[in-house]
């Protein structure tokens, strides 16, 4: 099964729509609730990152019997120092993002925590690509 979503930067009202739909699908196909939580928390953090930092982005979710693969491509300012951005507490979020309850520098580390495989590629001035893979077979 494959799903595609478009996310607009700054649209906090709609942030979470993709994660919500994926959660419903995973529940329908009887995935372990603990794995569902890992998938949707990782996806939601990444979705909020697009809304908070990018101009816009696209999300692709591929669900197979073995895993959930998520790819998020955004166009935006990119991440200057990916290594730094992966550190807990490092944030470049605006005050508006903080008012929404985010921007504490915990998003990317939390995605890593929930993913089995997580890669970040970013080009300053162009955008960022995240790839998240979570196995649905082994709860590890």
């Amino acid at each position: 099964m494959e799903f595609k979503f478009h996310v607009e930067g700054g649209d906090f009202t709609s942030a979470g729509t993709a994660s919500s739909q994926i959660k419903k699908v995973l529940k329908q196909i009887n995935i372990d609730p603990i794995i569902i939580k890992r998938v949707v928390v990782a996806l939601y953090e990444a979705e909020v990152n697009i809304v908070a930092h990018a101009h816009h982005g696209d999300i692709k979710v591929k669900i197979t019997p073995q895993q959930v693969y998520i790819r998020l491509d955004d166009e935006g300012p990119g991440i200057e120092n990916v290594e730094k951005a992966m550190q807990k507490g490092f944030s470049t979020a605006s005050s508006k993002v903080r008012e929404m309850g985010f921007g504490a520098g915990m998003g990317l580390p939390n995605i890593k925590e929930n993913a089995d495989i997580f890669t970040v590629r970013s080009e300053v001035g162009k955008g960022t690509t995240l790839e998240i893979t979570i196995s649905t077979v082994n709860n590890g």
Partner: peptide
């Protein structure tokens, strides 16, 4: 977003 966070 507080409701969405609760949902996830």
């Amino acid at each position: 977003q507080s409701i969405r966070t609760a949902e996830m």
